[in-house]
Amino acid sequence: MAVGKFPVEFSHIMMFARSVGDDNPIYHDPEYAKTTEPGTVVAPPTFAQSSAQFDPDYVLRPRPGKPWFGSGKEPSGVKAGEGGGGGNGGGLHAEQHFEYHRHLKPGDVLTATTFPGKTWEKEGKRSGKLIFSESVTEYRDQNGKLVITARGVGVRTERPVEQA
């Protein structure tokens, strides 16, 4: 993933905070935010993940004219093995880590650069062979300063995770 321009905006922060059920006014009330220690609206701790919105090639967003693997007339818009994004949806998020060098605020304009990390395999009890892959994303601000370092681990499972 490479995101050339991720503008951090007030209304996006407000919507993101709502979606995680966080009604802390620092995320939606600039007047209140002035009275807090940061002194401004800031982004919630996992907000950087929404850089996906600004990745032009993000595979988990339907795009006009491209096949989409979610349902329409049929349970999937693509046939097995045809590709078209997340395939059968077998990829799951296994881990996520953030290091905050400073917190994001409206007006920041970030870039995100992702570097591939390790890959490894494990035999899982509930889902067959697991293939893990790691990536590190550096978020830099409008001054080129590193603001957040994110490390994600994805896992592809051989079969759906069995439910207990």
């Binding site: 996006h12 919507m15 993101f16 709502r18 979606s19 993940q49 929404s50 850089s51 996906a52 919105q53 990745d55 993000y58 988990l60 967003r61 339907p62 693997f69 979610g70 349902s71 349970p75 999937s76 997340g86 059968n88 949806g89 077998g90 759906p160």
Partner: peptide, 19 residues
């Protein structure tokens, strides 16, 4: 809000029948 539209999270038909 996040931009992650993986149907596994919102599309019951896909998630049950395909995934």
């Amino acid at each position: 809000a996040s931009g992650d539209y993986n149907p596994l999270h919102t599309d019951e038909l896909f998630t049950v029948k395909v995934a």
